[in-house]
Simulated scan of single mutants.
Amino acid sequence: MIEVGDLKKGMVIMVDGEPYRVVDVNKHHMAMGRGIIRTKLKSVKSGLVKDVNFSSGERVDEANLTFKEAQFLYSDGEHYHFMAMDDYEQYALTEEEIQDAKWYLIENLQVSIVFLEDKPIGIQLPNVVVLKIAETEPTFKGDTVSGGGKPAVLETGLRITVPFFVESGEMVKVDTRTGEYVERA
């Protein structure tokens, strides 16, 4: 059992005996009462999305998930193909199952495939991935003092903000949980 206050985007929970992926979580606090946790849940089986409100302190069952280490092979436009590291079996997942993880996938990236009842339902990325900067604005002398950053597009199409001293073609580490620049690789 997990407390609803600890729910995070991407978790899979059981509601009314059905597995649901948490799409969005918002916490609202009342003046003299308990808080409300508003969630948007997507059914793993049917794909239907519904809004569910929980009272603060409620508990829900976490889905019984299993994980298998795999390597990303390629994307053919409709499916993302992975190969299990232990038995070399290949799995094809749709963009809907991958969700925002598609922005971090590069060939040969090691991930974990998430299974629910022996059916793949998604992937779990490493906390940090190394990606190449495809394009960013040139640096001007004196920009490094002001702090902040400049927009950059990575090789996967992801847009992030990087420090002024980072140039096109450099490799950078990106946090897959927040989508933010960590450091140069």
Rank of each mutant, 00 (worst) to 15 (best):
R38E: 15
D16W: 03
N108P: 00
E78S: 15
T178R: 11
L7K: 09
E95C: 07
D87M: 05
G148I: 02
S146N: 05
Y74N: 13
V182H: 11
H29M: 15
I13A: 09
H28D: 08
T139N: 00
A185H: 14
T161C: 03
V22H: 03
D100C: 01
M11W: 11
I133F: 00
V25E: 03
T178P: 07
K102S: 06
D6I: 12
T136S: 00
E78Y: 14
I123M: 11
K119L: 04
D76H: 12
V162W: 00
V44D: 12
G157C: 07
H79P: 02
N26T: 04
I106H: 05
A134H: 04
D175W: 12
V114W: 04
V182T: 14
G142K: 02
Q99G: 10
G17K: 06
V60M: 08
E107R: 08
V4H: 07
R21E: 11
L131H: 01
E107D: 06
G149Q: 01
K173V: 13
E170K: 01
I113V: 13
L48Q: 15
M83N: 03
Y20T: 08
Y91S: 06
L73A: 10
I121P: 06
N26G: 00
Y104R: 06
Y88D: 08
E96S: 05
V49Q: 13
K45V: 15
D51K: 15
Y91A: 07
Y104N: 05
Y91R: 03
K27T: 10
K119G: 02
H29D: 12
Q124T: 04
E58R: 15
N108H: 08
D175Q: 11
K42T: 05
G122L: 05
Y91T: 12
G122Q: 08
A70E: 09
G179F: 07
Y80N: 01
K45D: 14
F115D: 00
I36H: 08
L41G: 13
L131N: 00
P120E: 05
R21K: 10
T136Q: 00
T94V: 06
K45T: 13
L48S: 15
K150T: 00
L93K: 07
N127P: 06
Y80C: 00
Q99Y: 10
E97I: 03
P120H: 03
E137H: 00
G47F: 12
G149M: 02
L7Y: 08
F164Y: 12
K102V: 08
